[in-house]
Design a protein around this nucleic acid. Sequence first.
DNA 1: TAGGCCATCTGGTCCT
DNA 2: AGGACCAGATGGCCTA
Length: 355
Amino acid sequence: MLTRLFSDPSLLPDVQKYSGWAEDSDSEDKIKGEDQDTQDGMEASGLRGDSRTHSEHEGEDDEDDEVEEEDDGEDTEGDRPKKRGPKKRKMTQARIERSKMRRIKANARERNRMHDLNSALDNLRKVVPCYSKTQKLSKIETLRLAKNYIWALSEILRSGKRPDLVSYVQTLCKGLSQPTTNLVAGCLQLSSRNFLTEQQCQEGGRYGSGSFSMHSYPYQCARLSSPHCQPGSNSHPLRTHGYCSTYDSLYGGSGSPEYNSPEYEGPLSPPVCINGNFSLKHQGSASPDNEKGYHYSMHYSGLPGSRPTGAHNLVFGSSGARSGIHTENVLPYHDMHIHQERAPVYDELNAFFHN
DNA sequence: TAGGCCATCTGGTCCT
DNA sequence: AGGACCAGATGGCCTA
């Protein structure tokens, strides 16, 4: 593993910028050597993964042996009782050097481990319903979205019913931050206005529709202080752009009146608010996120000045995908797409909507 | 400038 | 002894 690591210069960090190494001139020099010429550097320093030969140890071992002999002599000496516990060995220069090298190797392993972890997260990003090259989901958001996605799919399988789009998106967005929610909603070409209305928030924050049994989710809609999230606000961009769900084109549900219902085509509701506390499996048990006290307050505001953090405002074209325009041409996220081709389960999901 | 996110280092713990 | 894993600390980058 280390061999692989050391043979891959990209896995080696620019450690010069780390003060910890800068303080240790010896270590810094070693790292610099590794950075400049990893293989040769490792060979020069006698470090080749964990496969150091005995001969490589010899010089140091000689010195250590002296120390150990001292210790052994102490333990076996005369009538004195043996000391318990680990022997304290003198930190000779060679021992210090070896310790440093161990630390360097451990750091490299840790880096590699985190890179692997990040690679896995990247792979996960690619199979969750929303993927953007430029606006990458954060780690925590990726995990949350993945959890919601798994739950949504399992609900589909469990109920065998075609889910309500709004509920589906709601499920996906449970506990996600506002930018991520907008991203997901944008991917699905669904205005987040449909998630929850301010009125629904006031009514206790329970929202139920569709086969997802969303009513069982313990929403906690915090009061929104933003004036843009007040009933009657006309600031929503969808008021001017109109709203056109591409759900039909995305999921092939054009024949279903359910998705052309006035609920989705009617007057635009005020900016929505969701506090996404996602309770798993309807048991009322707090999700890990809840247990950790995560409490995301989501509100959608279309005011230019109230652009969601780190996200673009959702701008839905009035024709959009209904006229055959691909999502990527409609959304500001040029590289954002639903990657059905990479997620077989999405095909199954589509099958639900096609039926 | 504060806050979020991230990469990395580091020491501790557990296991082989 | 050494590797895997973890959590805390730290500093950089970016954005509102």
